[in-house]
Design a protein around this nucleic acid. Structure first.
Length: 417
RNA sequence: GCGAUCGUAGCUCAGUUGGUUAGAGCGCCGGUUUGUGGUACCGGAGGUCGCGGGUUCGAACCCCGUCGAUCGCCCCA
């Protein structure tokens, strides 16, 4: 290990080989499915004014103060590497007048940055796919978005995850529920874990998904959102669930599923591996594969007109773990040159094969005697060998695939020298 | 920020209660087999055992520190 080589930044990854193939498979599948649902592609900046994220997330949270990659540029302006897509898309929607396209369905993917301690399925630079519907307040938008997520997971071959669904109601319902939770947990405060006692002040909803055994006894009897839902909020949720049923999307109710941020309204959801499944084992403690919700309050926090919106995002690395290692596509042709005087013949054959749409590798270096071995190890369906027989150039071809053999003959034997 | 486990060739790993010049497989390079669909044989390069200190006659091994990795807690947009 050379002392001079700089190390990669903590929490960044160099993805290669089968893992990189799995990553690409996730992105390609997402791109294909997103077209089926007519989501339009957007490309966003990787960094924004810190304000964009601070205002949308809420200034107070740990998330803003500790988990963002922020820095000053040369003009002294505070910038931040995007920790999520939603805030930047909302900003673009407002600054570019995309209201004219509403309701707007957009999709994107790329790197995101969060200053966190790396662990299984969590990195400082990680990658997500993302889909948003902006300017659509009706429950059908939630249904469409969730149907797309469900289809994506199935097309990725992931069948052991389930949609966990909840509603947070409208702003009034949500506040009433929150107040009731605080009151309830205050009553048993002494018996809660230290973490949850702190959460009581900062983020009471989060007590509901505490992992601490000391908290669990109190969770079952905690107030439920359903008791606080307004008539409209109930109707909205009912429309979402019946729409999902109609679309054939399986779901389970998750009464304790919450969102930390204030701008979330109504639908909140996560796709989570089924207990004991292969996917659950593959993900370790990072169980959520895809998550999102309705964020009707966000646009206002960025100074825009009230605009309903709903979206989700999913970690590409986590999806790639569930998809499993994928091998590179098999090589079709290995071109082996066993005598250096024939190298240019090999080069032109290799080149002609590729231009004719066949994947090809040239083996013309190293010990001539070992080239055949080296070439055959590439695992190609066909091998083309250039060698010298009695001082004359000789071409031989072997193939396990007759159609491929014909295609090769058409290219290699007819190519102008 | 906290905790646990781990750091030996390019890769995956051995290394006996501390004992001489630190090993294997794979990969890489070269040679042999006049070989032709992966599998043979021989040889070679490549390691201050993460780094720094300590204990000891002697440390890859024991102790302390440090850096890094992994997994978990907190947090999770």
């Amino acid at each position: 290990m050379s002392r001079k080589t700089p190390q990669a930044i903590r929490g960044t990854q160099d993805i290669f080989g089968a893992d990189a193939e799995a990553f690409a498979f996730v992105v390609e599948t997402f791109e294909r499915v997103r077209r089926l649902y007519r989501f339009r592609r957007v490309e966003m900046p990787v960094f924004e004014k810190t304000e964009v994220f601070a205002r949308s997330l809420g200034e107070t949270t740990d998330v803003v103060s500790k988990e963002m990659y922020s820095f000053e540029d040369r003009g002294g302006e505070s910038l931040t590497l995007r920790p999520e897509f939603t805030a930047g898309i909302a900003r673009a929607f407002l600054t570019n007048g995309w209201q004219q396209y509403a309701p707007l369905k957009v999709a994107t993917h790329g790197p995101l940055f969060r200053y966190e301690r790396p662990q299984k399925g969590r990195y400082r630079q990680f990658h997500q796919i993302d889909a948003e519907v902006i300017g659509a307040g009706e429950p059908q938008a939630d249904v469409e978005l969730l149907a797309m997520a469900d289809q994506l997971l199935k097309e990725l071959g992931i069948h052991d995850v389930t949609l966990h669904l909840n509603t947070l109601g409208d702003a009034a319902s949500r506040e009433a529920w929150r107040a009731a939770l605080i009151e309830y947990f205050l009553g048993v405060k002494d018996q809660l874990s230290e973490e949850s006692q702190e959460r009581l002040e900062k983020n009471p909803l989060r007590i509901l998904d505490s992992k601490d055994p000391r908290d669990k006894p109190f969770l079952a009897d905690a107030p439920k959102i359903d008791a606080f839902l307004s008539e409209e909020a109930s109707a909205f949720f009912a429309a979402v669930t019946s729409g999902l049923d109609a679309a054939g999307v399986k779901w389970v109710r998750a009464e304790s599923l919450v969102r930390g941020l204030d701008y979330y309204r109504h639908t909140a959801f996560e796709f989570i591996p089924d207990e004991g499944s292969a996917s659950a084992a593959a993900l370790g403690s990072q169980s959520t594969v895809l998550g999102g919700g309705r964020y009707d309050g966000l646009m206002e926090s960025l100074g825009g007109a009230p605009t309903p919106a709903v979206g989700w995002a999913a970690g590409i690395e986590r999806l790639a773990m569930l998809v499993g290692a994928r091998e590179v596509e098999a090589l079709q042709v290995a071109v082996i040159v066993e005598d250096d005087s024939l190298v240019s013949m090999g080069i032109s054959a290799n080149s002609a094969l590729r231009q004719a749409g066949m994947s090809s590798e040239l083996v013309a270096a190293g010990s001539p005697r070992k080239r055949y071995d080296k070439g055959s190890k590439l695992g190609a369906s066909a091998i083309v060998v250039y060698s010298l027989v009695d001082g004359h150039p000789d071409i031989r071809m072997k193939s396990v695939d007759d159609d491929l053999a014909e295609r090769i003959k058409g290219v290699v034997y007819d190519s102008p020298e």
